[in-house]
């Protein structure tokens, strides 16, 4: 690691502070290794999604888009996100408020509990939902008596995606809320603002970027979840098949074109997510330096 340049600071690398010749040689080697590794693992596979989807032009892609099962998968995926995101947002905001604004015993423990869905394997998450709501599950008999289908139907898919995307909002909002401090809120209260007014006028503007970031991540995960949804959905084409499930099913049926048409949509979702994330990070960074 010869690239240690005493005058180099991470934030501002300017042209007059160029490393010396022998150092730049090592730098080039390190950068090349890094990019080669990323290319093998990340860039070539990512590029392949777009190449395969449009290998025969936009025509077949558009033709695939109009298949009924495909359209149904898109509808289902959007619907899942429309339910999961608000649910997890309300939960995340309440949890963030409860945790960031108070010190109490077991605080760290509560934080780890909220983070738990990230460490549980998606398949295990799906299995748990089956064990609660499935035929052999806790509420299976009762649900069947009342003619309510949860597992192998839409409700369980929503439960599964809500489970895996649960921690994002709380996680992103807690640090922002902690950093903002309670001073402004207390001032608002003293000036006679109600809880609700304080939230809308003081707290929300303070946490808006963190919250938005959490929303975007929740949305991406809820739409893109495969493992947990796959366990609970039964994967019935045109009925309980979300877009990520459609990708796998089409691939297994040797319909590569259809698989890649769906994959490219999901990849675009990922790219949009990353772009928004980058913009939001830059916004918060600018605020920090002010």
């Amino acid at each position: 690691m010869t690239s240690v340049d005493p005058f180099l600071t991470t934030a501002q690398v300017t042209s007059e502070k160029k490393p010396t010749k022998s150092k730049s040689w090592a730098s080039i080697a390190l950068v090349s290794i890094a990019i080669a590794y990323l290319a093998l693992v990340l860039y070539i596979p990512a590029l392949n999604v777009f190449m395969q989807a449009f290998s025969k032009g936009v025509g077949p892609f558009l033709a695939n888009l109009t298949q009924p099962t495909f359209l149904h998968a898109i509808k289902l995926t959007v619907l899942m996100a429309l339910i999961c995101v608000p649910l997890n947002t309300v939960f995340g905001l309440c949890a963030a408020w409860a945790i960031a604004r108070r010190r109490f015993p077991g605080r760290t423990f509560l934080l780890s509990i909220i983070d738990l869905p990230f460490s549980i394997s998606p398949v295990v998450a799906g299995l748990m939902i089956v064990l609660v709501y499935g035929q052999q599950g806790w509420f299976g008999g009762w649900l069947q008596d009342h003619g309510i289908r949860v597992v192998f139907a839409f409700p369980a898919m929503v439960l599964a995606s809500a489970f895996v995307s649960m921690p994002f909002v709380a996680r992103e909002v807690i640090p922002v809320l902690e950093e903002a401090g309670a001073d402004q809120e207390e001032a608002a209260k003293i000036l006679g603002a109600s809880d609700w007014q304080t939230f809308w006028r003081v707290t929300l503007p303070n946490i808006r970027w963190g919250l938005l970031y959490g929303l975007i991540l929740t949305n991406a995960r809820a739409m893109g979840e495969f493992g947990a949804v796959s366990v609970v959905s039964g994967n019935i084409a045109g009925k309980t098949q979300s877009l990520p499930l459609f990708v796998e099913e089409a691939y297994k049926q040797y319909e590569g074109e259809a698989a890649y048409s769906a994959a490219v949509l999901l990849a675009l979702l990922a790219v949009v997510t990353l772009v928004l994330k980058e913009i939001l990070e830059r916004k918060t960074r600018i605020k920090d330096t002010e």
């Binding site: 990323l38 990340l42 860039y43 596979p45 990512a46 392949n48 999604v49 395969q52 991406a220 739409m223 893109g224 979840e225 495969f226 493992g227 877009l243 990520p244 499930l245 990708v247 796998e248 691939y251 698989a259 890649y260 994959a263 999901l266 990849a267 979702l269 990922a270 790219v271 997510t273 990353l274 772009v275 994330k277 980058e278």
Partner: peptide
């Protein structure tokens, strides 16, 4: 920014392309 792609890309898409 691209380093986070594996977090954002649905896993079935990753499996398909890999």
């Amino acid at each position: 920014a691209s380093v986070d792609l594996p977090f954002a890309l649905p896993t079935s898409v990753a499996g398909l392309t890999l």
